[in-house]
Design a protein around this nucleic acid. Structure first.
Lengths: 343, 343
DNA sequence: ATGAAAGCGCTAACAG
DNA sequence: CTGTTAGCGCTTTCAT
């Protein structure tokens, strides 16, 4: 199918054909235009195309100790595979596209043991890596050196990594303010343990602060620690009214959780938003599909992907010096799950 | 952190330390146990650990023209990134885990142009590749040679690929039989165009055949061509009763579609299953969360992942000869979206 | 603007 | 069981 179906065309083949040295061809192929005459460039290009040249990536990586590969690391639990959350999926897919357009490749790698990260970086001569779904504590312990590391949704202060995340504090505030504006005073905060992840801690902080400004003390906010899953949300929903009879509104730190909550509430005979108002976080696709639609704090996923890609690329291609973490904007998306509290 | 923090420990360093040749170390590291004495193995192992040896993957790939890399190729539309469907996500995540445990690595690669596949295979010295979300027509055109290729959900007869898919024909039958058993006679089949993908063609075939056996001719089955998306399903749901006043049951070829349909029907004032029964396909997580729960044809995703991984690995490690495609089982999952037709 | 030499770290193939 | 000899295809460095 290809023009001249040589099994393997290499630089030296093109060099011979063009009557130039291997180095000249290499320079042409790598766009080092300053080092080669314009006429030569065109001729070499044409010959390479005609012969169906495909660069050998391992050879390039070995010689240059630079791979043009960026790894996406995702921790794997004992249970099973990776790519659990829709959020992670969006990040990985988006970053792959950005990097591909800039000539980089994506290695997808589940991490079982600490140390796998550093090992992979050395073994592959990675140009950079993006850490997804790691806890702050895990990121704190990362010791890989000399390679740009972007950590998604991290509040770790590990100086080797730069964090890219949503403005979670502001998101927490928005949720509280919206609920308070609707007239609610008895609130419940539902999410995973605060200490584990900075993300949740920030959302709690924003939520609590807005409440405090409205005269509601932190101790007066009910808190339920639940895992971020539909099932855990549903479970909580089933017993919510029994456990918190006076609560009139819930802020769940993730939409999956909120959607599960809604299902559990329905099952238990409670109506949303008539009996209980609900605000989620993320703005997943499914949040528009529930009945009622879920009012939620939307993350700016395209921006997150773009920033993560931009930073890793900049750091790889010459960037240096310490760099501040990036926080992306949030916005309240009103659907139908919030109303005034029942009298 | 590592024992002796050499920047780069290579085979020759270990060889020198152990007083053996580089080849011996190489053999030890690659588990070619037959070629090395037991005592030597232990000693070399110990030294390698102590020095913190990490194999250089590009070097290995170059020398062996074998990369231990399996690519996962996903087509990218003009629109944006890859990893769209939950289904694809599960496949990629699952396969990554299986391969990692067998010492292979996963390159995730969006495909923009035909030919990118063959180019990547050559350029990376890939050991194999898995094609996800390609249409049969696209797979027909793939010309890469000499490398095992597994195509997920493909009915292409391209002899260079081996298909791993669900028993879609049987799934179509199950859906029809369930609806017929509930007493429905006026059915609607909703899905993307049949010709484009073998998957849909098979489901239609099974559906139609079961209907025929019950005395319902193919012409008497209503058909709506819609894209596999929530929005398209919703759109259809909104106008369904107007367009097909006598239809009492719908088979949608995907759960996302079915869930959208359900939303549209609700909006239009139609009740599921009182006014209209609904069967989906896939058994996504969300299908358990709708109200009512969606009755659907479940795919055996773990089996799909396991088979795809097993086949690619077998083919890489010595397998040869033509191999038959694999079809995984399906099962009807009854939730609440099917009832007897209204009189 | 172009080329020659040297070697990246590893493995295949054969020799002992 | 172990060692030797040759590269894999490319880029670096330095010369011209």
């Amino acid at each position: 199918m290809c023009p001249e179906d040589q099994v393997t065309v290499k630089l030296s083949d093109i060099a011979a054909e063009a009557g130039v040295s291997v180095m000249t061809v290499s320079n042409v192929m790598n766009g080092k235009r300053a080092r080669v005459g314009a006429a030569t460039i065109d001729r070499v290009r044409e010959i390479a195309d005609r012969m169906g040249y495909v660069p050998n990536i391992p050879a390039r990586s070995l010689a240059a100790s630079r791979s043009h590969i960026v790894a996406m690391f995702v921790p794997v639990g004992e249970n099973n595979s990776l790519l659990v959350s829709p959020h992670t999926v969006a990040v990985i897919g988006g970053v792959e596209q950005q990097l591909r357009h800039r000539g980089y490749h994506v290695l997808l790698r589940g991490i079982e043991h600490e140390g796998d990260v550093a090992e992979a970086i050395r073994g592959w001569s990675l140009d950079g890596a993006i850490l997804v779904e790691f806890t702050d504590a895990e990121i704190d312990r990362i010791a890989a050196d000399g390679v740009p590391l972007v950590a998604i949704d991290s509040y770790s202060t590990n100086p080797r990594t730069v964090g890219v995340r949503t403005d979670d504090y502001r998101g927490g505030r928005l949720a509280a303010e919206h609920l308070l504006a609707a007239g609610h005073r008895r609130l419940l905060f539902a999410g995973p343990p605060h200490e584990a992840t900075g993300v949740v801690a920030q959302r709690w902080d924003g939520f609590r602060t807005a409440c405090a400004e409205a005269g509601i003390a932190g101790e007066d906010i009910a808190v339920e620690e639940v895992l971020t899953s539909f099932e855990d949300g549903r479970e909580l929903g089933l017993h919510l009214r029994a456990r918190h009879p006076d609560v009139t509104a819930v802020f769940a730190t993730a939409d999956v959780l909120a959607v599960g909550l809604m299902a559990g509430l329905h099952e238990s005979g409670a109506a949303v938003p008539a009996d209980l108002s609900l605000v989620g976080f993320d703005d997943l696709d499914i949040s528009a599909y529930t009945t009622p639609g879920l009012t939620t704090i939307a993350q700016d996923m395209p921006a997150k992907v773009a920033e993560a890609s931009r930073i890793i690329l900049e750091e790889i291609e010459g960037g240096e010096g310490p760099r501040a973490p990036v926080s992306l904007g949030v916005a309240l998306v009103e659907r139908g799950s919030v109303a005034a509290p029942r009298e």
